[in-house]
């Protein structure tokens, strides 16, 4: 498996504009306009499909419970800003600031978990790519089968094991299993093989740099875009994980934000005021991920495809 996605895409983008120009001159303008409009139309329609639910979430968070049904559904009201702030205030004060707690928990589970998980996966994948040692293929095959074992299939046995050592309903029960990402190791191996030249490691060895130090000072820098991609994947996987916290946690104060909103949502029929809190809470909970994706875009958009390039 070889992959050098970043350089390939750059080369591609540099060369593409001239190719397009040549093509347009070769073709009649009419057909070109027609297929252009068809393409734009398809993409336009689906943009509406993808963004309307998020837009609805945004506009609805600026309404009071009664206004949700009585006002124009996909637009703001006259006092949207005030209502939105009031909703936010209620969201963060309801149940002694439970929602803020959930956000912090999610940040801890997903942020710290993905950070440690990425370092661990990177070390293992790097060793698999860059060193010859006995059992290397065996370890890699075990990791690969781990990729095919779905995490949800592990939730129940993990629960049984954690209840044996009486650690269910603690943060550890969600945090520790989240650190393991076989897919991360798989990606790290591919990236390390593609981006860390063996000659460089030899040179570092001749300079007297230890293996561990070389990894942390030289190799991780070369693998940086890949590490961001692995981090994001694992962050999303932990942030979205539902079965594990659902089965492990009873104490609401330990919930990640998804499980918390799920719990509120299932109580709406008894406590109708929760409805607008669920909607505002949903908006607030997806913002960190959208911001993280936008901020780290240049890393993942080049690194994402490497797993599929063979």
């Amino acid at each position: 498996m070889t992959a050098a996605p970043a350089t390939a895409s750059k080369r591609r983008r540099g060369g593409s504009s001239t190719a397009h120009g040549a093509r347009n001159r070769a073709r009649g303008p009419r057909q070109s306009i027609m297929s252009r409009s068809a393409a734009m139309l398809i993409m336009g329609v689906f943009t509406l499909y993808f963004l309307t639910p998020i837009w609805w979430l945004l506009t609805t968070s600026t309404k009071t419970g009664g206004e949700i049904t009585s006002t124009a559904p996909l637009w703001f009201t006259a006092d949207s800003a005030e209502t939105f702030l009031a909703n936010l205030g209620r969201l963060f004060t309801y149940g002694d600031g439970l929602f803020g707690r959930w956000l912090l928990n999610s940040a801890l589970y997903a942020g710290v978990g993905a950070l440690i998980g990425t370092i661990i996966a990177a070390m293992c994948g790097y060793a698999l790519a860059k060193y010859e040692f006995r059992g290397r293929e065996a370890i890699f095959n075990i990791v690969l089968s781990g990729v095919l074992v779905p995490a949800t299939a592990l939730a129940l046995p993990l629960f049984l094991i954690f209840s044996r050592v009486e650690l269910t309903n603690t943060m550890w029960a969600v945090f520790l299993p989240s650190l393991v990402s076989p897919f991360g190791v798989y990606l790290a191996r591919i990236y390390a093989a593609a981006s860390v030249p063996g000659e460089l490691l030899e040179a570092a060895r001749l300079d007297g740099s230890g293996e561990i130090r070389t990894f942390f000072t030289v190799s991780t820098r070369l693998m940086a875009p890949a590490l961001v991609t692995i981090f994001l994947f694992q962050f999303v996987a932990i942030w979205n994980n539902f079965f594990l916290p659902l089965i492990m946690l009873r104490d609401q104060a330990l919930f990640p934000v998804t499980l918390g909103l799920y719990a509120w949502n299932s109580q709406i029929s008894q406590i109708p005021e929760l409805r607008s809190l669920v909607i505002v809470g949903a908006l607030v909970s997806i913002l960190p991920l959208i911001i993280a994706f936008l901020a780290l875009q240049r890393f993942w958009s080049s690194g994402l495809g490497a797993g599929g390039v063979k």
Partner: peptide, 20 residues
């Protein structure tokens, strides 16, 4: 970006939104 944005929405939240 527009097409990728929903990926940032966890399954639970997506189900709540679409449920409404």
């Amino acid at each position: 970006l527009a097409f990728f944005a929903p990926y940032a929405v966890p399954g639970v939240i997506a189900a709540i939104m679409w449920g409404f």
